[in-house]
């Protein structure tokens, strides 16, 4: 019975969309679903950010959200196909790993709406959401350089892919913008998706960097970053979290977090579908949209001096106005030295 009602409402919605925009704004009965990225849902970072967004949607509108946590790459396709067959719509795909699968499934189910975070598909029923991670990385890079006493800062990436090099590249530019003499040491955890879920190796890489004089380290590595943050806490150094606001994990040790509001992207995608304003196409979100930012709260307020805050806020305004140009690694697959 709910299925029929849902179909009926959607039928009305389609008619409404044809007859006039006013009718299309009626809230629809939707059956949203989310397919998480590899790693785990509770990674306190990327996946969990998405989960927070879908959870907020579920509570706010009392709409159940179907979820799937894939165990390996081959399950992406099954998850999307099964969700589409069960009439779930829209379906949220989390992470670049799912781009090719969404491309394929969206073709087979042209009436189902897909939202893809961190990946691009050109199909009309796919909404691709990308972020300008280099902008936020630039800001936390500045903070790292200003907080460092040794003049050496570190970066631990997850899987070595262009997306993570974009983080590293923006971070490096921010570091040098704040302190031209600062030295950056960077490591990637691995070359396969398992690099997103290896806290032990993350901690090892961070300890290695501390031994070489690093005293602030930025982790852009999903659940692997938890190990980096822990190692920094244990060694009495500073760390920078990623994607979700991770300041609360180790108050006093996490300098700040490069916040990528995947939760907002997830929430908005479902909300737009519910409101009938969902549109396919590519959107790129950055500092300007509030989708990328650095985190300042009670947990790290003691670590950020007024001078640091004012310099970063000025740089943020300059990036938004276009006065500072942060080079995007993925544009030319290269980073300025």
């Amino acid at each position: 019975m709910p299925v029929t009602i849902g179909g009926f409402v959607r039928a009305i919605l389609v008619v409404g969309a044809v007859s006039g925009p006013a009718a299309a704004a009626e809230a629809a009965d939707i059956k949203p679903a989310v397919v998480f990225d590899l790693g785990t849902k509770y990674d306190k970072s990327f996946n969990e950010g998405v989960f927070n967004g879908t959870e907020r949607f579920r509570k706010e509108f009392n709409v159940p959200v179907a979820e799937f946590e894939p165990a390996n790459e081959t399950q992406f396709e099954q998850a999307h196909r099964r969700f589409a067959q069960r009439g779930q719509d829209p379906i949220l795909a989390v992470g670049f790993n799912q781009a090719s699968v969404v491309d394929r499934i969206a073709k087979d189910f042209p009436d189902t709406r897909f939202s893809l975070i961190d990946g691009v598909s050109k199909l009309p029923n796919v909404q691709s959401v990308l972020f300008r991670e280099q902008e936020g990385s630039f800001l936390v890079g500045m903070l790292a350089a200003m907080a460092s006493k040794t003049g050496k800062v570190g970066f631990v990436g997850g899987m070595d892919i262009p997306l993570i090099r974009r983080f590293a590249c923006g971070y490096g530019q921010g570091v040098r913008y704040a302190d031209a003499k600062a030295e950056l040491i960077q490591n990637m955890t691995g070359t396969t998706p398992s690099a997103w879920n290896d806290p032990g190796r993350g901690a090892e890489l961070a300890r290695g960097q501390f031994d070489r004089g690093v005293d602030v380290v930025f982790a852009a590595a999903g659940a692997t970053g938890l190990g980096v943050l822990q190692a920094a806490k244990d060694a009495g150094k500073l760390s920078i979290g990623v994607d979700s606001n991770q300041n609360h994990l180790h108050p006093g040790s996490v300098l700040t977090s490069m916040v990528k509001r995947v939760d907002v992207a997830a929430f908005d995608s479902f909300k737009e579908a519910r409101d009938g304003t969902w549109k396919g196409g590519v959107s790129v979100l950055g500092l300007k949209d509030g989708a990328i930012d650095w985190a300042l709260d009670d947990n790290n307020k003691a670590l950020i001096t007024a001078d640091m805050k004012s310099r970063v806020d000025a740089a943020k305004a300059d990036i938004i106005s276009g006065k500072i140009k942060v080079v995007d690694y993925m544009e030319g697959n290269s980073c300025p030295p």
Binding site: N72, E73, T74, E77, T192, P193
Partner: peptide, 12 residues
């Protein structure tokens, strides 16, 4: 049969 491309971990 299924993936129609070479991916990682298909042996699962």
């Amino acid at each position: 049969g299924v993936q129609h491309r070479l991916i990682l971990n298909f042996s699962a």
